[in-house]
Simulated assay, not measured.
Amino acid sequence: MSVQLILAPLLAFIVAYFLILWQVNSPTALKVLDYPNPRSLHRKPIPRTGGVGIIAGILAAWLWLATAIPLALWASIGLLAIISFIDDVKTLPVLQRLLVHASVAMAFAIWQIYPSYGGALTFVAGLAILWMTNLYNFMDGSDGLAGGMALIGFGCYGLGAWLMGDDLLAAINFCIMAAAAAFLLFNFYPARIFMGDVGSIPLGFLAAVLGIWGWMQAVWSLWFPFLVFSPFIADATVTLAKRAWRGERIWQAHRAHYYQRLVQSGLGHRDTALLGYAVMLIASGSALWSVRQDAATQLWLVGIWMGIYFITMVIFDYFQRNRSGNGQNDCN
């Protein structure tokens, strides 16, 4: 194992840990508070600047690998982090944020995809990057969940790249994993700090573009990153599709995601996070197993996981409706 696979992640952890520690404990730290709203599952104001520590840790560690990381990736993360931090401090209009996210996603897709695959796949990839960028933000609403998913997801990316002999891609992802681990020490229930948009938006972008990067470098198939982050993808996509079908404004704050409903049903933040970790570990493990399998096997594996998510959601919806109906009858 090369030195960069050890030292770069260690640097990411140290920088992220001490910066977040300062944000949590120091009275002089910039504390942008997350006040409870209709989407929130917390009941008191909590700082939401933890993502500053995550991104600072990642970028500091990437300096160790600077000559090998494309300038477009540095620029994209920097722009997304800046606009997201501004949004954390002073809420920006949805269309304004979405325009920046879309511009960054499409620019990266054009740089990465267009030269080899042309316009159609470039457009699809840009939309996928845009969706994953925002999807991760949607799923950042329960103590320890998004941070733990980042630790597991990017750790799986790193392990997959290392197993396939790509030490650079492995190191890049292990740095993200290490910064997420430092954040999780302060974010697991009961959370003392949230990552905010400045953390969730760049992490969602990285989940998409590093997955594409691995595919472009023939490290893994496109099914691999999809499987790794499939718990987040399934929850957010199905929830937003259902809200759109009902004619609701999908950009408005809500508590309809499955993980939010699990917390509200009595499972709580801690156990919801642990359940999420277990599902993602199993999904990531199956993705790692599939790396060396043929395309047909990988496709079958994706189909099995989609069936598992669909059946689980249908059963959960059924029992929650039944429970609600019984409650109403009891009240009557």
Rank of each mutant, 00 (worst) to 15 (best):
M1E: 10
V3P: 00
V3M: 14
Q4L: 13
L7R: 05
L7K: 05
A8M: 12
P9K: 01
L10R: 01
L11I: 12
A12G: 09
A16W: 02
A16K: 03
L19Q: 06
W22H: 15
T28W: 14
T28N: 12
K31F: 08
K31G: 11
L33A: 04
P36C: 06
P36S: 06
P36M: 02
R39P: 11
H42V: 09
P45C: 07
G51L: 00
G51W: 05
I55D: 03
I55V: 15
A56G: 09
G57D: 10
A61L: 04
W62V: 09
W62I: 14
I69E: 09
L73T: 08
L73W: 05
S76V: 05
S76G: 07
I77G: 12
L79Q: 06
A81C: 03
I82Q: 03
F85E: 10
D88N: 05
D88K: 05
V89T: 13
L95K: 12
R97A: 01
A109L: 06
I113Y: 08
Y114S: 09
S116V: 09
A120Q: 12
T122S: 06
F123Y: 07
F123T: 13
V124T: 09
W131A: 02
T133F: 04
T133M: 01
L135I: 04
Y136L: 04
F138S: 07
F138K: 10
F138D: 10
M139R: 07
G141N: 00
G144Q: 08
L151G: 03
G153M: 01
F154A: 05
C156W: 00
W162C: 06
D166G: 04
N173F: 05
A180T: 08
A181K: 04
L185P: 00
F186L: 00
F186A: 05
N187A: 00
N187C: 05
F188H: 08
V198Y: 01
G199F: 04
S200E: 02
G204M: 07
V209A: 07
W215F: 13
Q217S: 12
Q217V: 01
V219F: 09
S221Y: 03
S221D: 10
F224C: 11
P225C: 11
P231I: 09
I233F: 13
I233C: 05
D235Q: 07
D235K: 08
T237W: 01
T239E: 08
A241V: 15
A241H: 12
R246L: 11
R246Y: 08
W251H: 15
H254L: 03
R255G: 12
A256K: 15
A256Q: 15
Y258P: 00
Y259W: 09
Q260I: 02
Q260H: 14
Q264C: 02
Q264S: 12
G268Q: 11
H269D: 09
D271Y: 12
A273H: 04
Y277W: 10
V279P: 02
L288V: 11
S290F: 06
Q293N: 06
T297N: 00
W300C: 11
W300M: 14
L301K: 02
V302E: 02
W305D: 03
G307H: 07
F310M: 10
M313P: 04
V314Q: 15
F316A: 14
D317C: 03
D317W: 02
F319S: 03
R321D: 13
R321G: 04
N322S: 15
G327Q: 13
